[in-house]
């Protein structure tokens, strides 16, 4: 079986290598790929959209419906992870830690759900106190990571960046919080309900911007139609910013949803 697959792989690789002989040289500016559509984008995007970052201009304006459905794909991935893994069966044993003294209470088969208050903290059996160095370093790093993520989202029109990239950075800052403290601490700060609403709201913001343009009398996602409300100046850049914020919200929430469901197998306890 291994030998057979090796032969198949080598045959495929040989065919592909044979095919590369006809491909253009590396870095040749006159390849077919860069002569037709991309030439138009480079030469006219700044006139059409007033956005210097061509990648954002193509992503959020020329190909904006593609990006909208891409955001929907991301949302569906988060939804699929939630549906597959989320486990709502209540735990039998509950452990609570008295925060000031460190005493641990073990409650077996409680009749009803006990909600831990300020003094007591809900915890799991395999609980280890988080390391002080890791906690301190992450506490100092996370705000800067989040500020940087917001910068990447907001500045996507003029420098490298955009909704997907910024959303991933923001989501990874939340994941860092879950790793350095624990999952319950993250879920206390950012509840699951909030994440679910945020991931759907991102897609709705995107589609809402498109539909509002239709209401104002233009095509779907035609940002020019917002000019009477926000003014003519950089109106397409502004529309793209709104769209990128929607994308960023959705991507952030979905990153965190995928993480929290996979590491804890849907139980939302300590996780890793």
């Amino acid at each position: 079986m291994k030998l057979l697959s090796l032969i198949v792989v080598c045959l495929t690789g040989g065919l592909l290598l044979y095919g590369t002989a006809d491909l253009p040289d590396w870095g040749d500016p006159n390849t077919p790929a860069s002569l037709h559509l991309s030439k138009y984008y480079i030469e006219n995007a700044i006139r059409d959209t007033e956005v210097p970052n061509l990648v954002t201009a193509v992503l959020a304006d020329y190909r904006s419906i593609d990006t909208m459905l891409e955001t929907a794909v991301v949302f569906c991935a988060g939804l699929a992870c939630f549906m597959l893994l989320r486990d709502f069966t209540p735990k039998k044993d509950h452990y609570y830690r008295h925060v000031p003294s460190g005493v641990i209470l073990h409650v077996k088969n409680p009749d009803r759900q006990i909600i831990a208050g300020n003094e007591f903290e809900d915890m799991d059996k395999e609980w280890l106190p988080p390391d002080t160095i890791i906690k301190t370093v992450c506490r100092m790093l996370i705000p800067f990571i989040q500020i940087y993520a917001l910068y990447v989202v907001a500045h996507g029109d003029f420098s490298p960046g955009g909704g997907f990239q910024g959303g991933v950075i923001l989501g990874s800052s939340f994941i860092l919080l879950a790793i350095s403290y624990n999952l319950k601490y993250l879920l206390k700060r950012v509840s699951e309900k909030f994440l679910g609403i945020l991931s759907a709201a991102g897609v709705l913001v995107y589609m809402g911007i498109g539909l509002a343009a239709m209401v104002l009398g233009g095509n779907f996602l035609d940002y020019e139609k917002y000019a009477p409300i926000f003014g003519e100046h950089h109106i397409r850049a502004l529309g793209m910013l709104g769209v990128e914020i929607g994308v960023g919200m959705s991507v952030t929430a979905v990153m965190v949803i995928i993480y929290i469901n996979i590491v804890s197998e849907g139980k939302h306890d300590e996780g890793l």
Binding site: A33, S34, L37, S38, Y41, I42, L54, V55, A57, V58, L59, R63, D66, T67, E70, V73, V74, G162, F164, V251
Partner: peptide, 14 residues
Amino acid sequence: NPLPHVLMLTAIVV
């Protein structure tokens, strides 16, 4: 060429 970058941005997300 910005076009492959855009296409691959979406491919990474997928």
